[in-house]
Structure formats: C-alpha cells, structure tokens
C-alpha cells in the first residue's frame, strides 16, 4: 500500500536553503576554529600518547596464560578455549606431566599452546570458558609482528605476558 510521507511545511527562507547552508558553514567553521585554537582534544596521538593510564578495569587485551602462586601452569589443556574460540585462533597440543613432576597430580599440561593473534578478536570467550582460570585477557593491545608467524604467540610468550595469578582453583591441592 502506498504510504505518503508527510513533508514538513517550510517557510520561504527555509525553502531558499541559503540561510541554512550559511548556518551549517558556521557550525563547521566553529569546529575548525576550536581545533585550531586547541580547544578540542579528541584524537590521541598514538605512539606518544597512550591509553595505558586510562584503560578501564574490564579492558580486553591480548589473551595470555598464567601460572599459579607455586609456578604451576594453570592450563591443563582441556581445549575448551580452543573449542569456543570463534575465529579458531587457539591451537593446543595436549601433553601429560611426567610422574616425577611436582605437580604430577594434575597429570595434564599443554605441550604446545599457540594463539594466532592475527586471528584473535579479543572476545574474551576463552577466559570465560576456562575451567582452570588459566587464560586471561591482559591489557596488552600493541600486538605487532613482521610476518604471520610473528603474530602467533607461543606458550612461552603467553606465559611471559600473563605472569602469575594467585588463585581461586584449589582442586589440585593434594589434600582436597
């Protein structure tokens, strides 16, 4: 069914457009003037000025792996993060801990853990899904590299970025 859009009734001056055009020009000119006088400060000059100080608590930067207070890798390579990761950025090769290891009770730890940062979309689902609180999105955002291979964070890099996180998971405590 045809539907007629009611047009507003314009006065002669409005129909002439010119006054409005001048008004518009005045607005844009004001913005220009304020920029030139340095009154507006919206843009951040990136390498010199950085977000670091202003990053909110919930900021989601690069995903990293963390160790617990005893230096144990938290990750048990359950591969849930690999499963949930929407762009399939995570690739894990599971492995088992040797029986003489201090943490032998945990039995399992990743042999290799790669996050392809050229794929990662910083969604945080890996952190959300991890049953061991082993993967956290830290505040690193300047992830760069000169090749695709450079953009893959391997296990050591992930632990280096992640550091330690004293923790909430007590189930590997031998007494519990």
């Amino acid at each position: 069914m045809a539907y007629t859009v009611r047009r507003p009734n314009l006065t002669f001056w409005e129909k002439l457009y010119l006054p409005n055009i001048v008004a518009g020009l005045a607005i844009t000119f004001n913005h220009l003037k304020k920029m030139l006088k340095g009154e507006t400060h919206v843009v951040m000059q990136y390498p010199e000025e950085k977000w670091d100080a202003h990053l909110p608590e919930y900021y989601r930067g690069a995903p990293t792996l963390v160790t617990d207070e005893h230096g144990r890798e938290r990750c048990v390579s359950c591969q849930l993060c690999e499963f949930i990761c929407p762009p399939r950025a995570i690739k894990i090769t599971p492995g088992s801990l040797p029986s003489d290891s201090q943490f032998a009770k945990v039995e399992k730890a990743p042999e290799a853990f790669d996050i392809d940062m050229s794929r990662c979309i910083y969604c945080g689902l890996c952190e959300e899904v991890c049953p061991e609180q082993a993967i956290y999105l830290r505040k690193d955002y300047a992830v760069t590299g000169e090749s695709r291979a450079d953009m893959v964070h391997h296990k050591d890099k992930l632990y280096e970025l992640g550091g330690t996180m004293p923790g909430l998971v007590h189930k590997w405590n031998p007494d519990k």
């Binding site: 359950c78 499963f83 599971p94 088992s96």
Partner: peptide
Amino acid sequence: FRFKMRVWF
C-alpha cells in the same frame, strides 16, 4: 588415546 585429543573435536 589418553590426553591426545578432546572427544568433541
């Protein structure tokens, strides 16, 4: 098969 791959993959 132990610890080689999660079954859902």
